[in-house]
């Protein structure tokens, strides 16, 4: 449980850490678009994206292992979508067939393609959360969404909810771990039985977790009120972000990536 690094800030100072969170968010979005630009079966595009990840990781001083680990959290999803492609894609030439199972070359290629795409996206977004504190992230989103205030969208509240959610991830994970252990000590079994039985076995974990989350939310609300919180009105910001040369370099590198991908698509 403690291995999940998604949404976990890696504390250091680096080129990437010092970049403006708003820029990093925009670049991440642009990066995701770039990954989607990679044409089907043109794997060189992924190589370029991977190169970009490696480069950014080096400049962020985050151990590459931490970036890689972010994939672990969604490993099941990756495998699931790959398996779906392998077994159910019937286009292309058949390379293997046994009873009702047919595996085609297109299916295999598509599976590989999807795995690459998901991994590139997850690693890219993990880099964002590894180099940006949740508060910066929330502030960045708040700032980017601020035009929406015109249509009365509660931008500030939305950003605050997100940063608090991120802040509580480790706390709730620890709590889940403890509840699982406690119920295991009472003989609970989460590993055996069919799907329905396993789903039912989750109840003794989910209910205490839900109850405690409500209690935490209640206490947090009181603590925030006690610290003079009264919405965005009259509120100032401790950390103001500014665009620096780093952000411009970031823009240029990413622009390079997009151009590279478009070029490689043609190869």
């Amino acid at each position: 449980m403690k291995d999940v690094s998604f949404g976990q800030y890696y504390n250091t100072t680096s080129f990437v850490h010092k970049m403006d969170a708003r820029v990093k968010i925009l670049l991440s979005i642009a990066y995701i678009v770039a990954v989607f630009l990679v044409k089907e079966f043109h794997f060189y595009g992924f190589l370029a994206a991977f190169l970009f990840i490696v480069l950014t990781t080096i400049f962020s001083k985050v151990p590459f292992f931490s970036v890689l680990r972010s994939v672990k959290g969604i490993l099941f999803f990756v495998i699931f979508s790959a398996v779906l492609q392998i077994f159910f894609n019937t286009a292309g030439e058949v390379v293997f067939s046994w009873k009702f199972i047919t595996i085609t070359d297109k299916g295999l290629l598509k599976a590989g393609f999807i795995v690459c795409r998901i991994m590139m996206i997850v690693m890219g977004t993990a880099l964002l959360t590894l180099t940006t504190t949740p508060v910066e992230l929330a502030d960045g989103i708040e700032s980017l969404l601020s035009p929406l205030k015109l249509i009365k969208f509660p931008v500030h509240e939305f950003a605050l909810i997100m940063s608090i959610a991120l802040r509580f991830i480790p706390t709730l994970m620890e709590e889940t771990d403890r509840i699982i252990k406690a119920q295991k000590a009472r003989g609970a079994d989460f590993e055996s039985g069919n799907l329905i039985k396993r789903a039912k076995a989750m109840i003794p974990i989910l209910i205490p977790l839900l109850v405690s989350s409500f209690r935490r939310a209640d206490e947090l609300a009181d603590a925030m009120d006690a610290r003079c919180y009264s919405g965005s009105k009259g509120r100032t910001k401790y950390k103001k972000q500014r665009i620096t040369y780093r952000d411009i370099i970031g823009f240029l590198v990413l622009a390079g990536l997009i151009v590279g991908i478009v070029f490689l698509n043609g190869v």
Binding site: I179, A185, G187, P204, P208, S212
Partner: peptide, 30 residues
């Protein structure tokens, strides 16, 4: 685990069942 019982810190945070009876019986049924 049936021979060596473990009460965690703040054990009341593990209660989950609808009735006290069911909660206490949870271990037995397992």
């Amino acid at each position: 685990r049936s021979k060596i019982g473990m009460v965690f810190q703040y054990p009341e945070y593990q209660l989950f069942a609808e009735t006290v009876f069911e909660d206490v019986a949870f271990g037995l049924k397992n």
